[in-house]
Design a protein around this nucleic acid. Structure first.
Lengths: 140, 140
DNA sequence: TATTGACTTCGAGTTACTCGAAGGTGCTAT
DNA sequence: ATAGCACCTTCGAGTAACTCGAAGTCAATA
C-alpha cells in the first residue's frame, strides 16, 4: 500500500496530479485509510500507470474516463477497448518516431555548439541545416 | 515562401498555434506580404521547427523565447545556448525512452484484447501484468 | 507539549493552446 | 460587376490540465 507521495515518486508524477486524477474518478476502487488518506495498492498503481500512458499518448482525461468506464463494464466492451487501444498505439508509434527525430535534432544542435566552442569556425561546419543559427550567430 | 496554412501542414502544427508563436515573437525576422499576411521563408520554417522541438521537450514558451533571444545576441552566448541544448537533450532522451515504454505498454494491451477477442480465455493469458483488466474484464 | 511532516479539501491562477467572430483581399464563375 | 469562396488578419473569450497555496486534520517524535 502506497501513499500519494510514494505513488507519485514511483510513477514520476506529482502528488497534485495524482490527486487530480483520483478526484476525476480515473482510478477505480481507490482505497482510503481511517483518516481518509488515499492508499494505492498494486491495482491502483496499475490504473495510474495506464492513465499516465494513455494521457501521454495525447488522450484527453475525458476520453480516458470513458475507457476506464468501458473496462469496468466487463467483457462486452472488449472490442471497443481494442479499437481504442489500436488507435492509441498508432499515436504512440508516431510519437516514438517524433521523439527520435527530436532527440536527433537537438543532439545535432548541441554538438554544433560544442564544435563551435572548441574553436571550429562556422564555415568549417556543414552549413545547410544550420542556417537558423547562422542568422542567430551573426546577429542578423 | 509559405503561408501560415502551408507552414502548419509542413510542420504538423495548427495555424492557430503558429500565429500564437509568431505573436509571442518566437520567430525572428518574420516576413509579411503587402496585405500583412505572414510569410515563412526557409529560415522562418527552421525557427518554427526549432521552437516545435524545444516545446516538445517540455520547455516553456518563455524559456524558448529566452533561448531565441540568446541566439539573436550572437556568438557571445554560444556557451549558454550549449548548456540549454545539453539540458534539453537529456530531456529528449528521457522522453524517447518513455515513448518506447509507452508504445510497448500499449501494444501489449492491444494484443491482449486481440487475443481475448480471438477466443483465448483470460486464464490462458499471462496474468501478472494484466491485473488491471482482470478487474476490468470481470466487472469487479 | 510543541513541532514536524504528510495528508486532506478547496478554490484561485497559469500555460498553452483553441475557437470563433468580424472584417479585409483576391480569384473565379455567372 | 457582383457574388461567392477561400484565404488571410486581429482580438478576445473559453478550455484542459495542471499547479499552487491556504487552512485544517492527524500521528509520531523531541
Amino acid at each position: 500500500m502506497y501513499t500519494v507521495k510514494e505513488a507519485a515518486e514511483l510513477l514520476n508524477l506529482t502528488d497534485h496530479t495524482i490527486r487530480y486524477y483520483t478526484d476525476k474518478e480515473l482510478i477505480p476502487n481507490l482505497k482510503r485509510d481511517q483518516h481518509n488518506n488515499r492508499l494505492f495498492d498494486k491495482e491502483s498503481l496499475n490504473w495510474l500507470l495506464c492513465v499516465k500512458h494513455l494521457r501521454q499518448c495525447g488522450m484527453s482525461l475525458e476520453d480516458i474516463k470513458t475507457y476506464v468506464n468501458l473496462c469496468l463494464k466487463g467483457d462486452s466492451t472488449v472490442k471497443q477497448r481494442y479499437n481504442i487501444m489500436r488507435k492509441q498505439q498508432a499515436r504512440a508509434l508516431a510519437q516514438l518516431e517524433e521523439a527520435r527525430q527530436r532527440a536527433a535534432y537537438i543532439e545535432e544542435k548541441a554538438n554544433h555548439y560544442f564544435d563551435f566552442i572548441r574553436g571550429k569556425l562556422p564555415d568549417e561546419l556543414d552549413s545547410e541545416k544550420w542556417d537558423i543559427t547562422k542568422g542567430a550567430c551573426k546577429e542578423t
